[in-house]
Design a protein around this nucleic acid. Sequence first.
DNA 1: GACAAAATGGAATATAAATTCCATTATCGG
DNA 2: CCGATAATGGAATTTATATTCCATTTTGTC
Lengths: 274, 274
Amino acid sequence: MQAAEGPPDNISELLARLDRMSAAMPKRLRQCAEYLRANINLVAVTTVADMSSAAGVAPSAFMRFCQALGFSGYSEMQALFRSEYALSRPDYAERLSHLRARGGNGSARLLADFVEAGHKSLVSLLNMTDTEVLAQVVDRLAQARTVHLVGMRRAYAVVSYMGYMLQKMDIPCVVHSGAAGIEFTASMQPGDLVFAVTFAPFAQETRGIAEAAHRAGVPLLLLTDSADCPLGKIAEAQLITREVDVGAFRVPTASMTLVTTIAIALGGARGDAG
Amino acid sequence: MQAAEGPPDNISELLARLDRMSAAMPKRLRQCAEYLRANINLVAVTTVADMSSAAGVAPSAFMRFCQALGFSGYSEMQALFRSEYALSRPDYAERLSHLRARGGNGSARLLADFVEAGHKSLVSLLNMTDTEVLAQVVDRLAQARTVHLVGMRRAYAVVSYMGYMLQKMDIPCVVHSGAAGIEFTASMQPGDLVFAVTFAPFAQETRGIAEAAHRAGVPLLLLTDSADCPLGKIAEAQLITREVDVGAFRVPTASMTLVTTIAIALGGARGDAG
DNA sequence: GACAAAATGGAATATAAATTCCATTATCGG
DNA sequence: CCGATAATGGAATTTATATTCCATTTTGTC
């Protein structure tokens, strides 16, 4: 195994190099590569000894692995992670523990809890989102003549924000608020598309509109929080977000982030085409 | 300086101890305490030598400081931070760099960008929010007979979600969508309160409703993204959130989180009273 | 201002970690 | 199946880092 030229100068480059090289590595070094990929966050705070034994490899093997990636040794690789780490998380941890610990007045503590839940929701959004499906949803929406946004209760804020963004980008869309019932389905035409957002327990009105549209030949794209959503069966594509809750309550952080991404990607796609 | 009994077993406890003891510490140790508070996130990835020189003290002084907090030494304190760190951020960093670096299809990259912006917005929410003001807002809302929620355009999703939560908790509220103009002000009565959400450039309708309410003697609470908001002058209390953008676009993550916090705290406050 | 007690900084030491070396084992081509 | 080449693991070495010790300075008290 001959070493790469210079050391990677950021984590993205390191990962790229890892992908490129790991297939051609001997057994032990490949073990290192796999362990590193799965536990990349530990590098900043772990010794070679711990790292190598967790990977099931001798320290010297891990050492050679680092050198194969272009580093002079483990320390140099660790330095990369440590510097990235120091940049992020400013005085956040401190505030968080503080608000949580003392409690002080209840609302500050609650804020800390919701912020933390938000972080977790975003992490899980990133980890769970199937980028193929996301691309497909954007693509599909780009072809639609008019986008019909459907969402009640908790999901309403999500579709209304999406509607706001689409309107700003001159993408034809209608937000179905449900107040007027299913009469809106009359406005759906061939070439249109329904983008429905519904969370457990799934609102009946959303289901009604989506199913009526489906019967009328208007395809459905779905954003939900559970694979069990009854609309999943008739949806052309389905995205799932899971919001971490505080007590029984949640902020639709992941969902808002995802629909914003879709809207902006869509704006780009339509802009390119038209 | 005599040492505390056992070592703190989490960061919250450490910070509490720090607050309790730092006032009574000699000069150099107090320097350590202050530096640690401001740079607590660095402990996991920094040596005593670096830490102490950055704090402007000798390594031995920093050592004594750690012992005063109840640790056997710096290593033991560092171990605490390292273990907390290892728990958080699972395979998140990896996904993020991945989606960002290769780009692949545009929407996946965009998602990574929005997720990261969301994290930053939440951090800044935690750092910027004045917990006194937050408590005051909750308190004030708890006394209101009816809460009037006002927000247009980008802010509409925020107030509509807040309205949804208040309704679920049986707190009387009205969401002013602006569609019907200022006629709604007729529905405001003494003892009511306006909670307005407006972001730059501030929607004229929001301003109109809030000012009309103010003239009618109905007090205003404000959530905005800038200290320059014209409504700030007439607001009884003002909360500020800053959303980190991606290009020209943003997800109202911090604002949604804050209004959810307010709503739930309010539910608790009203629940206790009634 | 002299004394005692506490605090301090720098150097010496101890500990732990990274890195290299090399004898042994596995792998591959003929 | 043999020789050559690469890979491996463990021990030895080097380097970095934490920790202690103690002479000196500062602080507070009478």
